[in-house]
Deep mutational scan, measured.
Amino acid sequence: YKIYPYDSLIVTNSISVKLPKDVDRTRLERHLSPEEFQEVFGMSIEEFDRLALWKRNDLKKKALLF
């Protein structure tokens, strides 16, 4: 996945969300650098992957990456 800054990946309720063209809309968190991922989620990507799907989705919603 290509890395993008968190600010360019957050999704708000506005209709005209302009995400970069090559971003996987269903896995926005994968486009964060490991350092920024840790900062946003408070855990590593590996720890995040071990969580239940509902928990990952809940965290993504709170981080505006859903």
Rank of each mutant, 00 (worst) to 15 (best):
K60Y: 01
E35G: 10
S44M: 10
K60E: 01
F48W: 07
D49K: 05
S14H: 13
T12W: 15
I10V: 11
Y1D: 06
P34M: 13
R50S: 12
I45Y: 08
M43S: 03
T26H: 14
L65T: 00
K55G: 04
S44I: 09
D58T: 09
R56H: 03
I45V: 09
L64W: 08
L51T: 04
N13Y: 06
D58I: 12
T26F: 12
F41A: 00
R25Y: 10
E47Q: 12
Y1R: 08
N13K: 08
L32C: 01
R56V: 04
E36G: 05
I45A: 08
T26Y: 14
P5A: 07
R50A: 13
E35P: 09
A52S: 14
M43W: 02
W54I: 09
G42F: 09
I3H: 07
L28F: 02
K61I: 10
S16P: 11
Y6S: 01
D58F: 11
D24V: 06
R25W: 08
M43L: 07
S44H: 12
G42R: 12
Q38D: 11
R50W: 06
E29A: 01
G42W: 07
Y6T: 01
E47W: 07
D7T: 15
V17C: 15
F66Q: 07
E39N: 13
K60P: 00
I10Y: 04
L32T: 00
D7E: 15
T12M: 15
D49A: 06
Y6A: 02
D58W: 10
Y1L: 12
F48V: 01
R30Y: 06
D22P: 03
T26Q: 13
L51R: 03
E46H: 11
D58E: 15
T26P: 03
R56A: 06
P20D: 07
Y4V: 04
N13T: 11
S33Y: 03
V11I: 14
V23E: 02
P34I: 13
P34H: 11
D24R: 04
L9V: 03
L53Q: 11
L51V: 05
F41E: 00
T12E: 09
Y4C: 03
Q38P: 04
H31N: 03
R50P: 03
R27N: 14
E39V: 13
W54D: 14
A52V: 09
R56I: 05
R27Y: 08
N57Q: 10
E36C: 06
I15N: 15
D7Y: 13
S14M: 10
D22F: 05
R27G: 05
H31I: 01
A52G: 09
Q38R: 13
R56D: 00
A52W: 06
S33N: 07
K2N: 11
S33W: 03
S8E: 14
E39Q: 14
F41I: 04
L9H: 01
S16H: 12
V17D: 15
I3P: 06
E36A: 08
I10A: 06
Y6V: 03
A63S: 05
L51K: 05
K18N: 15
Y1N: 08
K60F: 02
R27V: 07
S14V: 12
A52E: 14
L28T: 03
P34C: 10
H31F: 04
E36T: 06
R30D: 02
K61P: 00
R25C: 10
S16I: 10
D7C: 15
P5H: 04
N57L: 10
K21G: 14
L51D: 01
K62M: 09
P34L: 11
L64G: 13
I45Q: 08
G42D: 10
E36M: 05
L28R: 05
S8T: 14
K21H: 15
H31E: 01
K61A: 08
I3T: 09
T12K: 10
K55Y: 10
F48R: 00
D7M: 14
A63T: 06
F37T: 02
S44D: 13
R30N: 05
K2L: 09
I3L: 06
V11W: 08
L51P: 00
S16Y: 10
I3R: 06
E35S: 10
V11Y: 08
T12N: 12
L32P: 00
R56N: 01
F48M: 02
F48A: 00
E29Y: 02
R25N: 07
R30C: 07
R27M: 10
P34Y: 10
E47P: 03
L19F: 13
L59A: 05
G42Q: 13
S8N: 09
K61M: 09
I10G: 02
I10N: 04
N13D: 14
D24L: 04
L9C: 02
I45E: 05
K55F: 09
N13L: 07
L9E: 00
R30K: 10
V40R: 05
E39W: 15
N13S: 12
L28W: 03
D22V: 04
D7S: 15
R27A: 11
D24P: 01
V17K: 11
R25D: 07
I15G: 15
R27L: 08
V17E: 15
K2P: 15
T12Q: 10
Y6P: 01
K55H: 11
E29K: 00
V17N: 15
P20S: 04
L32M: 04
L19V: 07
E39R: 14
L32V: 03
N13E: 13
S16W: 09
G42H: 13
Y4H: 05
F66Y: 14
Y4L: 05
I45L: 13
G42N: 14
F41P: 00
I15C: 15
Y4K: 02
K2S: 12
R50Y: 08
S14R: 08
F37C: 03
D7N: 14
I15M: 14
K55S: 08
S8R: 14
G42Y: 07
